[in-house]
Design a protein around this nucleic acid. Sequence first.
DNA 1: GTCTATATTTGGATAGAC
DNA 2: GTCTATCCAAATATAGAC
Lengths: 205, 205
Amino acid sequence: MLEVPNDVTKPRDRRTERKQATRAEIVDAAWELCAAEGLAGLSLRDLAARVGMQAPSLYSYFDSKHAIYDAMFAEGFRQFNAYRVIPEGATTLDGLRSLAHRFAEFCTASPVRYQLMFQRTIPGFEPSPESYAISAAGFADYAAWMASHEIAHATDMYTGVMTGLVDQQLSNEPGGDRWLRLIDDAMAMVLSYAESTKPKRRARK
Amino acid sequence: MLEVPNDVTKPRDRRTERKQATRAEIVDAAWELCAAEGLAGLSLRDLAARVGMQAPSLYSYFDSKHAIYDAMFAEGFRQFNAYRVIPEGATTLDGLRSLAHRFAEFCTASPVRYQLMFQRTIPGFEPSPESYAISAAGFADYAAWMASHEIAHATDMYTGVMTGLVDQQLSNEPGGDRWLRLIDDAMAMVLSYAESTKPKRRARK
DNA sequence: GTCTATATTTGGATAGAC
DNA sequence: GTCTATCCAAATATAGAC
């Protein structure tokens, strides 16, 4: 939750550090509660109790309940950006599979996180511009990798297939692998689609 | 919402008919409210007001709020089963595309319906066995079609790809067609996957 | 910064008269 | 079957003492 993890140009401020640490503690507790009660089942009373506070004290750290969701959303994408590994020195197919498997692992590790980040299920919640920027930032490296392998034109197909398998898995058989084990085949499928629709250069087929 | 639409063996019962009609009216109003406020934003007070009742009167028709969600769930699948058209006399590819397009149309016509039917987003809500049976019943014809075209082994891949495109569309660009227009290509992709993994008979590749 | 106390709203659900 | 009245619980949020 440190917005600027290491900035030696600024002197440390113990008060700010402490506040950020408590904010992080609250967000962590919120994830735990949501995992147990559902994303929409989060309540400030329960959340406060879990971190040893009374509910009103939370307002020293967040302006509203939506602000907490927003912090969770931002942290989710920070984690996602850190978790993603851009393949190096791999074939296009192996790279696609690697990306897909890590995406699947990330999503299945926390279905409520997936729900908050990639679906829009909380009525009235919209991520702030700052949080949205974090979500957008991580796409750059990934898009560059796709482009360097000349499959940028297949990005939407990749994300569609990928999230579809994950979504079916989470919705219909949480904890299982019935759809996840199709990932390798699916990526081969997407790759051949990408090759047969390659623009500019002559298509192979 | 008629549970038994036409059963000539039983005499009509005007009282029961009236009650079923009112139940249907309530469910319709619930859909409208959810479309406006979000699936989780449904409140019994607002719902009652919309059908010209006081909130407690709803309990003459439904035992609880979850029972209303359950009726919505059941109606969603009744609509789905009626909307689905099993292709006849079409090639496998055209049949797949037809199935996929109708699925996409059905889902995009009502995102909250999609959310209730195919995702699990309401904390604590579980469809009743009766409603679940309705959702399962419709799969028979569809599975038979897949089997008759010798692509039953690719059913999970089909559903994964299909829901993925719809899901991306609804989450990232509601109202648009950025992912939906990939459906035809995606179905060709899935079909070639199905052919290359066909069991029993010798694989082609 | 945390608390108590409370405002305010709203939620789902029940009791009982008509 | 519908209403009024009400319960009860829970929610988010604010005010103000310490």
